[in-house]
Amino acid sequence: MKDIDTLAAVRQPIGVANGLPNAHYTDPNTYARESAAILHGQWAGLAVAAQVPTPGDAVPLTFAGVPLLLLRDRGGVVRVFQNVCRHRGMILVSEPTRIEGAIRCPYHSWCYSTEGRLVATPHVGGPGFNSDARIDKVTLGLIEVPSHIWRDVVFVNIDGTAPPFETVNAAAIARWAEFEEDRAGPLFHDGRSFTFDVACNWKLAVENYCESYHLPWVHPGLNAYSRLEDHYHIEDAGFSGQGTRVYRQLIEGDARFPDFTGLSDAWDTAAEYISLFPNILMGTHRDHAFAIILLPDGPGRTREHVHLYYATPDFDPDLADRNTALWKAVFEEDVFVVEGMQKGRAAPGFDGGRFSPAMDGPTHRFHDWVARCLGA
């Protein structure tokens, strides 16, 4: 009850609200509660579809303690299953692989199709008997996790209780409607990605990403041409972030990436960066985009997987290398900030902090969302 009372202070108007208290960044019990209500109970980002490009590709992942299997089935559909055999709960796939035939359990060789059906149970009825009337294969397929793909990100609702993805995220989908494939063309993932292993709670990465207040001090290179005053806040249902009215590629020389098609003039010089709650960070520009998957690893560590996208594969690979290096350098500048805030949560006198009413609206929107999901 005490935590709910404290969270009520988080949900106050921004000028008087507190931030989330320390336990929400450091305490294992609070992390478990958040995992159940937010990471399992909402549409959370798991991976990108580009990680399983061809039928049979499979990647094991652990998300908020749950072993999952991302795969592309024989028909080309991306699916997510709980990565356990229905017999004795053995992990089925332990490393990225190509499923050539069936998914075979390494323990007793029960086998599953890439659509999740239980197709073989060797010796289940005794030596030489591969069936048993008491074992109903129809009801013992792999447990499929509800999933949805938007902008190549694979979202999952582990406990299956969330409303449809399109309903929950209607505002974000509408905001970036110009970039949908039927208008702007597909997102092309060129294989370039990178990962940070960061010593912070996953929420701090969200909080830092969605505001531009820190630009002059943490990102002086970006701020030199896209100044703090060129940015605007984005706050809506289920997401928040920032945009800039001054965008141009920072890569030297005349070479440029092809633009997405069918965009309005507003995107000629604009770019937007949103945190799609709970754990996805996205950026879109007229000529490229990115998605950052935040995979929590307990209350104090996060793995950030960054994937870059373009409108077409027809561009200079050296240009893409330089663009990747540029974004990696920018995101590296944030590491000391989120790790420093994590260390600060060990201070018993810190009460969650305050928000700048003028500058922290997107961050307060995220705190309010978390508190609401936890029942405040």
Score class of each variant (00 low, 15 high):
203 K>M: 06
200 C>Q: 10
143 I>M: 13
155 F>M: 06
182 D>T: 14
151 R>N: 14
119 V>P: 03
197 D>A: 10
153 V>Y: 00
182 D>W: 11
126 G>K: 02
187 L>F: 11
165 F>S: 05
150 W>L: 02
130 N>V: 09
122 P>T: 04
202 W>M: 03
187 L>C: 01
191 G>T: 11
161 T>H: 15
154 V>T: 01
140 L>I: 00
156 V>Q: 00
154 V>L: 05
182 D>Q: 07
187 L>N: 05
159 D>S: 14
161 T>D: 10
141 G>F: 03
151 R>T: 12
116 G>R: 02
124 V>L: 10
172 A>G: 06
184 A>K: 06
197 D>G: 06
195 T>H: 13
166 E>N: 15
137 K>V: 13
146 P>H: 04
126 G>Q: 05
154 V>S: 00
195 T>M: 10
169 N>C: 08
155 F>I: 02
123 H>Q: 10
115 E>D: 15
147 S>P: 04
170 A>H: 05
161 T>V: 12
181 E>G: 13
147 S>K: 03
141 G>D: 01
123 H>P: 13
172 A>W: 01
142 L>F: 03
179 F>R: 02
148 H>N: 06
144 E>F: 15
158 I>N: 00
135 I>M: 11
140 L>D: 00
143 I>Q: 13
142 L>C: 01
129 F>A: 07
121 T>K: 00
186 P>L: 02
189 H>I: 01
137 K>S: 14
146 P>A: 10
176 W>F: 11
120 A>N: 07
119 V>H: 04
148 H>P: 03
189 H>W: 11
127 P>W: 12
145 V>R: 00
134 R>K: 05
170 A>V: 05
125 G>Y: 05
169 N>Q: 06
159 D>Q: 08
175 R>A: 04
